[in-house]
């Protein structure tokens, strides 16, 4: 009897909360929330200023003096979204980018410059065809755990990645995609390689978070923690430190399209 009462109480609690899952897909970040930097048309002062370049903790920014304008170059694959450059920049050349649609399939496209238009990732629309809308991912964590927690959060009732057919699996043998977080320090080189080799073709590798893309703040040290590239071939890059769950969901949907194109 007590058991029944408890179950009824639990069920009515859950029902009282209604549907908490967000119906929007990868909307912009809310006002006041920090994303990656982006560039505007406002002219940069040039090398006399270069305050952002000096402040950036990961040396992701370069200011190059060109004939007429100064070119600002930011490698988002090195950026930890600390927000220093956007708050320092006196000309609002560097501003906060609220977009969560930030993943790129080419490493170079993470490099943004005032002299070049950014590469738009465009819209995603699930997989290809009714039988290609699922994706089993294997996660290999080699970082500080915040990226992992955000992948975990992507599966919570609010973001709910399973509604798009994404599931996290416990073996590389039945995974379509390998998600790597963290800078892959030396002791993880071999385990990561082994995991990749155990996967069936066609397989995708997603470098999730700035560490996995470039090593981030850890690169070029004695632990050779320079990211996933060089250990396994990366197909998709998700910048951020850590990327927001919406950015992760967007990336996973891009990955489904890549998978559909390959198979």
């Amino acid at each position: 009897m007590i058991y029944e009462v408890n179950v009824i109480r639990l069920l009515s609690y859950l029902v009282s909360k209604g549907v908490v899952t967000s119906s929007q897909l990868s909307p912009p970040l809310q006002e006041g929330v920090r994303g990656l930097p982006s560039l505007t048309n406002s002219d940069c002062i040039g090398i006399e200023c270069a305050q952002c370049e000096q402040a950036c903790p990961t040396s992701a920014i370069q200011i190059e003096q060109q004939a007429e304008h100064a070119n600002v170059r930011i490698d988002l694959g090195n950026c930890i979204a600390c927000g220093l450059c956007t708050s320092i920049c006196p000309t609002a050349t560097i501003v906060n980018n609220p977009s969560t649609r930030t993943a790129q399939s080419e490493r170079e496209h993470l490099i943004i410059q005032t002299s070049l238009p950014p590469v738009n990732t465009g819209a995603v629309s699930g997989g290809g065809g009714i039988f290609r809308r699922s994706m089993a991912v294997r996660v290999v964590s080699t970082g500080c755990s915040a990226c992992d927690l955000e992948i975990g959060a992507s599966g919570n009732p609010i973001f709910d990645m399973e509604r798009f057919g994404v599931s996290v699996v416990a073996s590389p043998r039945f995974a379509d995609a390998l998600v790597v977080t963290g800078p892959v320090p030396k002791a993880m080189h071999e385990p990561l390689r082994t995991c990749y080799e155990a996967m069936a073709d066609p397989r995708l590798v997603i470098a999730l978070g700035t560490c996995a893309i470039s090593g981030g703040v850890h690169k070029n040290g004695y632990t050779e923690a320079n990211g996933a590239n060089g250990i396994v071939p990366v197909d998709l890059y998700v910048p951020g430190c850590p990327p927001h769950p919406w950015s992760i969901l967007f990336a996973l949907q891009m990955a489904m399209q890549l998978k559909a194109r390959r198979s």
């Binding site: 964590s141 500080c144 320090p185 002791a187 850890h218 040290g221 632990t223 923690a225």
Partner: peptide, 11 residues
């Protein structure tokens, strides 16, 4: 342990 030793203290 030690698999995610990234060399933080040295950095």
């Amino acid at each position: 342990l030690g698999y995610v030793h990234r060399g933080i203290e040295k950095r």
